[in-house]
């Protein structure tokens, strides 16, 4: 009788929901919702960065994030044009406010981070996406040799890109990997015991296009105990 009840239950569940149909544009709605939230996050980040720029009249941009408990891989760096004038210069002006990134630039920056940090990117492509790539070739090879699982499991997703001027951007991104020998900031999204590390880094526009800055790449590699 139990089997009968279970079979009936299954049939009733199917029958009572069979008329429900997902909207034809569900995927588009999801993407639109995702982009709306991402845009709002960017605006919030830009407002926060503007607040920092106004609060720090010395012209030095602080690359801090509100979630101070997370790993910080970016260091304070002078805002464009701020160095020569110095902090006491009466003519120094506030750092230009970051702006939302136009889509092609945004995509190029995202592509650089994907290439640089995805574990199975061919070496030449990964190094081409990093500022002064050849100088970090040995560190990259050393990292992958010390942690072979990274080659197949290290993935990156870019959460936000904020352009700070025409050739620099701050990028928030999330690394996921499955290697028990490496530190974990938080559990990954899957149920495979993977780990997730959310952090931020810098992108720079060079003659070769948008690239991950050498300092940012080396900071991430440094978290795994490998020095550039």
């Amino acid at each position: 009788m139990t089997a009968d009840f279970e079979r009936d239950l299954r049939d009733v569940m199917v029958a009572q929901t069979s008329g429900a149909v997902a909207p034809a544009d569900l995927a588009q709605s999801v993407r639109a919702r995702f982009r709306r939230r991402r845009r709002n996050r960017r605006i919030a980040a830009a407002v926060a960065a503007l607040a920092v720029a106004v609060a720090v009249p010395s012209g030095v941009r602080l690359a801090s994030r509100p979630d101070a408990g997370r790993q910080q891989i970016t260091a304070a760096r002078p805002a464009p044009g701020a160095g020569p004038r110095g902090p006491s210069s009466p003519t120094s002006s506030p750092t230009p406010a970051p702006t939302s990134v136009p889509t092609p630039t945004d995509e190029a920056i995202r592509a650089a981070f994907l290439l640089a940090f995805t574990g199975n990117t061919p070496s030449a492509q990964a190094l081409a996406a990093i500022e002064d790539g050849p100088s970090v070739a040995a560190a990259r090879a050393s990292l992958l040799a010390a942690h072979p699982a990274l080659g197949s499991t290290l993935k990156v997703s870019v959460d936000s890109v904020v352009l700070t001027d025409g050739s620099h951007a701050t990028v928030s991104f999330t690394l996921t990997y499955n290697d028990p020998s490496l530190p974990a900031s938080e559990p990954g999204p899957g149920s495979d015991g993977g780990s997730m590390l959310s952090t931020s880094g810098k992108a720079i526009r060079t003659a070769a296009g948008w690239q991950v800055t050498r300092a940012s790449y080396c900071s991430v590699v440094g978290l795994a105990g490998t020095q550039c």
């Binding site: 919702r33 995702f34 997703s157 996921t176 899957g190 993977g194």
Partner: peptide, 27 residues
């Protein structure tokens, strides 16, 4: 339910590069 599903799919979309290598429907 539709709103809940949109939220779940949005999260899935955000992590798609990792989720798609496993079992996205289970996720």
């Amino acid at each position: 339910a539709e709103d809940l599903l949109q939220g779940a799919l949005e999260r899935t979309y955000r992590h798609w590069s990792q989720v798609s290598t496993g079992h996205p429907e289970a996720y």
